[in-house]
Write a protein that binds this DNA or RNA. Structure first.
Ligand SMILES: NC(=O)c1ccc[n+]([C@@H]2O[C@H](COP(=O)([O-])OP(=O)(O)OC[C@H]3O[C@@H](n4cnc5c(N)ncnc54)[C@H](O)[C@@H]3O)[C@@H](O)[C@H]2O)c1
Ligand SMILES: NC(=O)c1ccc[n+]([C@@H]2O[C@H](COP(=O)([O-])OP(=O)(O)OC[C@H]3O[C@@H](n4cnc5c(N)ncnc54)[C@H](O)[C@@H]3O)[C@@H](O)[C@H]2O)c1
Lengths: 222, 222
DNA sequence: GGCCTAATGTGAAATATTGGACAACCCGGC
DNA sequence: GCCGGGTTGTCCAATATTTCACATTAGGCC
């Protein structure tokens, strides 16, 4: 029927958001396993670690191709490559960081951004005292110069770490500069044209989740 | 049939995780609207801002009670209180921060943790050079003293911001101390007893999502 | 007080996601 | 080359979630 394809990149019509989320988890777990020297893993074993159902994993992978070997399992190294390629993170994405405060600095110093393929190549702020400062080897640039710099540095993704009341303005600059996607750490919804992809990061959501789950447990009926 | 209950806290049997996620978004948006002086909002208007379906919002709220006024909409202040109460964040949760590196410091300095109800009352690290240091008014304590301190300070939630290879150890300390929930920022899955709630925070998942969505768009078929 | 408008709360239909079962098939041993 | 154990890929049933449609009801106006 169909040929065996070691590392395919076949796309099904629509992929659930939840699948993408889980694929990111699988990569994380697989990279840790690889570091520990494991070479092959079954969907059942991976499922136990990720606390999901084994067929869930196989189904998630099936959206993109056939990466396993029947009777054996998945070769971890190959699987990591295959998932990364499927997600579009088998390459480097140039990013602009807008807003150099506590969080922006923590991100800049975080080497893993680069190793995971998100390379911060431009650092912007509007505070005249910060402009010109060198951080992690990068000069802080005035955010008005975003349009010019985004083109020059071939930036595709903008990271917003300004205070919330400034986030929309930062987004506007990024949109004007022709950015393709925005990762917004400020706790505000942004309004951007339809062709720009926005992801909101808010770890208070995670705190809320824990609080809620604890509260539920402590309810009379468990 | 049923009485009108201004701020109820009625629980349906099972609430989708996605609903909790969205409720957190609603709170964020509502608090911004409140700050701008808006007092009443309809599900339709809120839905537009959050980019969801209006009946989705009404259904999400219906899990917990009836918070709106027919023909009018929702009184924002009341709705915020109602959602917070429903999620279990209408109170303060005492938290322990384990691991005082780049990210840990950024969190400590972030005043919003407190205003959102998550109060970091204990700061722990295993590095002898960091123990004793004062950060944001808090003394860094040796993580071996977690058991003792968690009881003393009435801590219920642990925040892990250690390097990934140390995260499991930090989790073990927290579990031994009788913590109820863990928010783990290290990119590793943890193994903890069934009665401890764990939430994983990894903003690379958000970066992956953006990358994936951009990649999809640029595919031949759009 | 009754009527009209507007927006909620909700049951039922549509859709999406997950889990279970099993045929297909790889690999090593004989 | 064939056989048996083991694990994938996939179809289908079960379940969960989202959306629709509308009856219901609050509030303002006459
Ligand atoms: N610090 C944390 O741990 C943390 C956690 C969660 C969310 N956040 C969110 O991340 C954002 C940043 O937090 P922070 O603690 O780093 O704040 P911060 O005040 O330390 O830093 C904000 C930076 O943005 C710059 N800025 C303001 N307006 C700008 C503009 N228009 N263009 C470019 N730069 C601009 C400021 O000059 C400043 O350097 C906030 O929205 C905050 O709510 C922070
Ligand atoms: N910095 C970021 O922006 C960022 C972003 C995403 C994820 N993370 C993750 O967050 C974690 C922390 O990142 P970081 O940049 O702050 O790292 P870091 O190395 O700056 O800090 C880690 C801290 O943990 C302490 N520590 C180590 N083992 C410990 C133990 N057993 N008990 C208590 N403390 C211990 C260390 O002494 C150090 O102070 C990492 O797992 C990282 O992958 C960081």
């Amino acid at each position: 029927m169909h040929r065996y394809t070691p590392v395919a990149h076949i796309k099904s019509e629509h992929i659930p958001r939840a699948t993408i989320q889980r694929l990111a988890v699988y990569v994380q777990v697989l990279e840790n396993l690889k570091r520990d020297g494991t070479e092959v893993i079954s969907s059942e074993h991976l499922a136990r670690i990720c606390a999901v159902n084994p067929s869930q994993i196989r189904k998630d992978l099936a959206y993109f191709g056939e990466f396993g070997v029947r009777g054996v399992g998945y070769y971890i190294e190959d699987l990591i490559s295959a998932i990364k390629k499927s997600l579009g993170v088998d390459r480097t994405w140039n990013c602009a960081l807008v807003g150099v405060g506590n969080l922006g600095r923590a991100l800049l110093r975080h080497k893993e951004c680069r190793t995971r393929g998100f390379n911060i190549v431009g650092v912007f702020d509007c505070d005249p005292f910060k402009i010109g400062e060198i951080l992690a080897g990068q000069e802080v640039i005035c955010s008005r110069r975003l349009v010019e710099k985004v083109k020059e540095l071939d930036i595709e993704i903008g990271i917003i770490t300004t205070p919330p009341e400034r986030a929309q303005r930062a987004a506007n600059y990024l949109v004007d500069a022709g950015i393709k996607g925005i990762v917004n750490f400020a706790p505000t919804r942004l309004s951007v044209p339809e062709e720009v992809e926005v992801e909101y990061v808010d770890f208070f959501h995670n705190f809320f989740n824990v609080a809620f789950k604890i509260t539920l447990r402590e309810l009379p009926n468990g």
